[in-house]
Design a protein around this nucleic acid. Structure first.
Lengths: 255, 255
DNA sequence: CCCTGTGAAGTGTTTCACAGCA
DNA sequence: TGCTGTGAAACACTTCACAGGG
């Protein structure tokens, strides 16, 4: 998952838990699908299944928004779509700027789901002068030199960073200086931002590493030892007393 | 952030908390950078700053791996790189298959960070016969018909889905049937998988919606009312008693 | 009688604060 | 003395289980 803090220390008064906020888009997607099929109402059980959560969690989540269901019946689909959209701020238009139009930036610019709910690609920005003017997904790429002006002119408050890691912090600083207060970072870098700016990150390699961790566990359970020995592990500066849970300098994979 | 369960109900015995696992890649990245600069040791404070967390959390996280630090000094960088790599299962090779070679799939195939730690793009698969044989990132795209064989031949246990949402579940089923036990899903769909298969998802539009939620809050604090009225909200089937936290059918954005 | 809404219990995660070792 | 390692407290999130309205 992505992260990024800078929220109130949760004084909980009219505050929706972060975990709930993260699931609202999921519910909204499931509800939208039901709406398109003209389903009028849905129970917590059905909706929960469609969204991939359990029904108790869903009901608890909805309870933070208010009492929007009908006992004995379920939830009104259209009504709930509207309430969640409003809660998420999707009833308004969010111009988004993408900085770094490489493979990934271009892929995102072309991504249809972008425009689906309130989001609009307002600008594509790249540091390569050769790209300036080139249309990507029907939008002309603009040069980084004009970043400040582009952000202000378009009223962009959400920026997407798809630059190489080395450029990410600098781009981030410029976006923030220009007025951006929410950043979605695809570069594998920790961004530091001033108070009040939200950062969420999407990191392919972190996700893969988490999967690898669990994958390794699965293999370890089935086959106690497999023996592969990729390369000699580095020896420690001080070979002092240590107490790793299992063998600390193994020649084979841990059991 | 991404999700995906199917883990032991946490019997906690030699078990590393999920939240900790999710941060290990972050620590590893910071440590690798230090290693490249030949920094021999690092304190929890310094490393925590580099990884974007606080030092107490980092120390607690490391304590689950064992006692790998030296009091009064800090942690040995090389040693810790090795221990975390091993814990994450990165000391072995993970062949990965990407299914759905559109803009995004191609972008991922070209993504350098992929190979950085143990991961190797072993196969690119697409349903379009016209793409078969076309090299993307130096690898020939293969047709979906051969999916089963490709997965088994390459010993792929981690699959990446970058297909359109409509095809995702079907592709998922085939991957699982062929032996894949970990899936990274970029399609905006809830995948259902059998017990024992891990799914993590990366979803651009969910991330944007979470940002929009917080962005809306910020705006709401500064300017109590802004008045925009995008469109008439749908009326509810039963206009019965409700008790939403704030105005339930507003003509303007909530205060 | 069904299904929502929610206190209360259970579980997981973060933070605190300090004992203890190099 | 400086910094790790870790119990204990605080906080967040999930699940249970059932009261209560339609």
């Amino acid at each position: 998952m992505a992260t990024g803090r800078t929220h109130r220390p949760a004084t909980r008064s009219r505050g929706i838990p972060e975990a709930t906020v993260a699931r609202l888009p999921l519910y909204l997607r499931a509800l939208t699908a039901l709406s398109e099929r003209s389903v009028p109402t849905v129970s917590s059980e059905e909706l929960a299944t469609a969204a991939g959560v359990n029904s108790a969690k869903l009901r608890k989540d909805f309870s933070y928004l208010g009492s929007y269901g009908t006992r004995g019946v379920g939830y009104d689909v259209e009504y709930l779509v509207y309430q969640i959209s409003r809660e998420l701020g999707l009833t308004q238009d969010w111009p988004v700027a993408i900085v770094g139009i490489g493979n990934l930036g271009a892929a995102l610019a072309n991504y249809g789901g972008f425009a689906s709910r309130g989001f609009r690609v307002a600008a594509l920005i790249d540091a390569d002068p050769a790209m300036a003017g080139t249309p990507v997904a029907g939008i002309a790429v603009q040069h980084t030199d004009d970043l400040d002006r582009i952000i202000s002119d378009n009223g962009v408050s959400i920026g997407v960073i798809t630059t190489p890691p080395g450029a990410a912090q600098q781009v981030c600083d410029r976006l923030v200086a220009a007025g951006v207060t929410s950043i979605l970072n695809f570069a594998p870098t920790v961004l530091s931002v001033p108070e009040g700016v939200d950062v969420r990150k999407v990191d392919l390699s972190i996700e893969l590493q988490i999967l690898a961790f669990h994958e390794q566990r699965k293999a370890g359970e089935d086959a106690p030892a497999e023996g592969e020995d990729p390369e000699a592990p580095p020896m420690r500066a001080t070979p002092a007393s240590r107490k790793g849970p299992d063998g600390d300098m193994p020649a084979v994979m841990p059991a």
